[in-house]
């Protein structure tokens, strides 16, 4: 039982690494998905501001 589980764990781990690596390689980088669920490849949009102070939630 333990042997079967160890084989499953190892094979699925390798599969996960290969699949995620391939997905990242195909998608290319950098990429992002905007608010309209549209995929964009290339640099991050310049208007994106990562700041807590700029969040409307903080001014509410």
């Amino acid at each position: 039982m333990i042997r079967v589980l160890a084989i499953i764990a190892a094979v699925s781990f390798v599969l996960a690494v290969v699949c995620l690596g391939s997905a990242l390689a195909i998608a290319g980088g950098p990429f992002y998905i905007d608010d309209h669920m549209t995929f964009h490849r290339g640099a991050w949009p310049s208007e994106v501001t990562v700041s807590l102070a700029a969040s409307p939630a903080f001014h509410a």
């Binding site: 699925s12 781990f13 599969l15 996960a16 690494v17 290969v18 699949c19 995620l20 391939s22 997905a23 990242l24 195909i26 998608a27």
Partner: peptide, 10 residues
């Protein structure tokens, strides 16, 4: 599809 499969395998 590959990303989904990778997460499922993980």
């Amino acid at each position: 599809v590959l990303a989904g499969l990778g997460l499922m395998a993980g």
